[in-house]
Each structure stands twice: as C-alpha cells, then as structure tokens.
C-alpha cells in the first residue's frame, strides 16, 4: 500500500504539528481547569441547567444504582436478621413490659382524642389533612465527607415534589431537593446546607436545626432564655410551610462546647427504605 508522503513518519506536516499539539495539550489543562471552576461557580449560583443535568443523570442511572445496591441490601437484611435473632428473648421481655404501659396510654389517648374532637367542633377549628406518603428505596448515599444526600428510586412518577419532607420509621431524615421522573435526591438534615425550623417539644422554644456534615446537627437561633434539658425531644415547627408540624427529629445532647447538638432519631447510616410526605408547601396569602 502506498502511503501519502504528507503522513509519513518524520514528514514536515508531523514535525510542524508536534509543537502545535504540545501547545494544545498544555492549554487543554488550563481550559479544563477553568471549565471545572466555572461549573462550581454555576452550581453555587444554583444554575437550573446544572440542576436539570444532575436530575437527568440520576434518572438515567437510577436503574443501575438500584441493581448495584441490591447485594449490599440483601447482606444488610441478613445481618439485621441475625442481630434480631440474638436479641429475641431480651426484646420479648421488653416489648411485654412496654405493651402493659402502652395499654394505659391508649386509654388516656382515647379520652384526650374524644375531648379534642369535641373542643375542635365547639371552636370550629379545621384540622390539617395528613400528607399522603410514598415509600422509596435508598439507591445512593455514599458521597463521602463532602455532602450528605441520598438518591431514592421514586420521582415525579409517584407525585414527589421539590421540598417534600422525607422520614424513616423513627423520624425526619431530610427533604427532597431535586426530582426526576423516577429518582429524587434527598438532602439529609446532617448536611451543612440543611436548615429545618424546629421547636423543643417540652419548652416550645423555637430554633433552626442545621447540619454540620459530621455526626450530629446543631440548633441555631435559640432564644437566650431557652430552657433545655438533655434528652428533650425536638420536632419540626412547621414554620416556613415546608415541613408538616410535629415530625420528630431527635433529642438534645450535651456537647460541652456551648453548641446544642441533636442526636437524630433516625439511623441515617443504615437507611434502606424511607417515606416521602407528599405535602404542598404552605404559602402566605400575599404570595398566592
């Protein structure tokens, strides 16, 4: 086969193109570094294009993530089964005692419920409709030390909306920050960007729960006169209209450094299934 002399090794064209290629290669590093920094700036400014791309990528790869997460989920289920087996006798005794206590509470609750209904009817109060719930499986959570978020396997196909509260059996875990057709990203309450209006159940002191990207979130903007005791329950206050009122979040723990930390009720490290509360944000009348 005859090779065109222009492309023969050592030809003039190749000799000319080598320095050019080196220049392009060197500038490519700077172009790509600049592009990466530009992406970070765009993301910081909450670019809708970045958000939409993120949603599309999570949506496209959600079936693969779902498939890849299955073996770990099966192993986790098996290990939890073993853990439960070893504690079966102890749990049985504890649950019997708890059942006796709950029977008393049931009678009190029935009585209070009846009183509540009568008083609400007398005052003409309208009660909030309970939000509908969608169960979802966690298919992505290991983002390392830089962010605390989850990917779940339901999206707009099940009616999810941005801002919906997400709970586990124990309490609040976060809120939906982006929704695709069959996947959604949940920002955990431990993420540094998370802000949740809460109140201390016993003293009714209001505060903002904020994440720290490490174990426990902390309370900010507590009133100076706040009366707190270790172990007090913290629940959502419903202010801002994003979260329903009264969702359990955690209990107060003493950090010893002046910060009021919260031990979350939900075990955020071992979430397999979560519930999304499909709840429309309450907007003030002047914004309607």
């Amino acid at each position: 086969m005859r090779i065109n002399s222009k492309f023969r090794p050592g030809s003039r064209l190749i000799r000319l193109s080598s320095p050019l290629r080196a220049v392009i290669h060197k500038s490519l590093i700077f172009i790509l570094i600049s592009a990466a920094i530009s992406f970070m700036v765009l993301d910081k400014n909450k670019s809708t294009t970045i958000e939409r791309t993120s949603v599309v990528i999570a949506d496209v790869f959600s079936p693969i993530l779902d498939f890849v997460s299955r073996p770990a989920a099966s192993i986790n289920k098996f290990l939890q089964g073993l853990e439960n087996l070893s504690q079966l006798h102890k749990d049985n005794l504890r649950l019997r005692a708890e059942n006796e206590r709950l029977k008393d509470w049931k009678m009190i609750a029935r009585d209070l419920g009846a009183q509540n209904r009568v008083l609400k009817a007398l005052l003409g109060l309208t009660s909030d409709l309970p939000p509908s719930q969608v169960t979802a499986r966690v298919i992505g959570d290991a983002a390392g030390p830089f962010v605390r978020s989850l990917i779940i396997n339901v999206g707009t196909n099940r009616g999810l909306k941005k801002g919906n509260a997400v709970v586990s059996g124990e309490g609040l875990i976060g809120r939906v920050i982006s929704v695709g057709e069959r996947s959604a990203r949940v920002l955990l309450i431990t993420d540094i960007n998370s802000r949740v209006p809460v109140l201390v159940e016993s003293s009714r002191d209001r505060a903002i729960l904020t994440g720290t990207n490490v174990g426990q979130p902390k309370l900010l903007f507590l009133p100076a006169s706040a009366d707190l005791t270790e172990g007090d329950r913290v629940v959502t206050s419903g202010h801002g209209g994003v979260f329903p009122v009264g969702l359990p979040v955690g209990t107060i723990i003493n950090s010893g450094d002046g910060n009021v930390l919260i031990s979350t009720l939900a075990r955020l490290g071992r979430l397999e299934y979560v519930r999304v509360l499909v709840f429309d944000k309450i907007t003030p009348p002047d914004q309607n």
């Binding site: 592009a35 990466a36 920094i37 530009s38 992406f39 970070m40 700036v41 765009l42 993301d43 910081k44 970045i50 791309t53 993120s54 990528i57 999570a58 790869f61 992505g140 290991a142 983002a143 390392g144 830089f146 962010v147 978020s149 990917i151 990203r185």
Partner: peptide, 8 residues
C-alpha cells in the same frame, strides 16, 4: 453529578 457533591 451522581454523588451530589459541588459540580466541577
């Protein structure tokens, strides 16, 4: 995009 860290 997949992990949800700052994009870029």
């Amino acid at each position: 995009f997949l992990a949800g860290v700052p994009v870029g």
